Amino acid sequence: MTCKQALVLCFTVAPMLAVADNLRFQVTDAGNGKPLADAVIVLPLPVDETTADARMVQENRQFVPHVMVVPPGTDVAFPNRDSTQHHVYSFSPAKTFEIELYAGVPEAPVNFGTTGVVELGCNIHDQMQGFILVTDQHHGVTREQGAVSLDWPDERPLPDQVRVWHPRLVNNTELVDVAVDLTGSDPVTLTLNVRPEPETDSSLQRLQQRFREL
């Protein structure tokens, strides 16, 4: 089966699922077959999440976690645990902001009220890159083994499409719609065409250049 935009190459499923209350996904890299951590699976199921404070930590000159998913309206703090200062910013349409050079914890958190993908950078440390995905849909994030499980209400028909996102998609500013068959008992395998993980990310270089041109 051909998947939309050729970003997702294929999916595999096993036969009939008796109870549709736990949907399992396995995400792999099309280039090397390895599991993909930090992939986000979004189901077409609105969730009325209560917003809560969240933290995107800077530690060892990295954003931790690398990928964070929050509901709209969430306040995110950016504590700096490093001995050096950071200068955090984003140009993403979903949230454009800047926290100028600081140490410790900024005085006020940043509110993320619009759904979409927010790419983070640091003007001081070129290698730093993080992402905050804002969604009001039921979702999960894969970890090191590329797997994630999501509950699904028994009374609702199974969806025939999910949305997928990963930091290294060729266009990582949008989620990709993927046709799936969820009537199997084994995990649904999603194989993504992603950019190799280079020593220096060219997309991050472009982000840095935009900042310096201001």
Rank of each mutant, 00 (worst) to 15 (best):
L214T: 14
L214K: 11
D48K: 14
Q137Y: 05
F11G: 04
V88N: 06
A108Q: 15
E119W: 01
V40S: 07
C3Y: 01
V88L: 06
G104Q: 06
T12Q: 14
P198N: 00
V47T: 11
N193R: 08
M16Q: 09
P44E: 07
G73H: 12
D201W: 08
V118W: 05
V42L: 08
L45G: 00
S92A: 08
M68H: 03
V47I: 14
S203P: 07
N60F: 07
E107P: 09
R143A: 15
T200E: 11
D151S: 11
Q26L: 12
I132V: 10
D48Y: 10
P167R: 00
N193C: 02
F112M: 05
V105H: 15
H86W: 09
V162M: 01
P79I: 10
V69C: 06
Q205G: 14
A179W: 05
L214D: 02
I99D: 08
A103Q: 02
E197T: 12
V27C: 03
G113R: 08
V110G: 05
C3W: 02
V70E: 10
R55N: 04
Q58R: 13
E100M: 13
A179R: 10
T12F: 11
H86C: 09
D151K: 15
F25Y: 04
H138L: 12
D126M: 03
P198F: 00
P159C: 05
W152Q: 00
V162N: 00
H66Q: 13
R24G: 10
C122D: 15
E174F: 06
R195L: 08
Q161C: 14
R195M: 06
T191A: 00
D151T: 10
A6M: 07
A77Q: 11
D160C: 10
T84I: 11
H125I: 03
N80C: 12
H86E: 11
F25V: 07
N171T: 12
G104P: 13
L207Y: 09
F211Y: 12
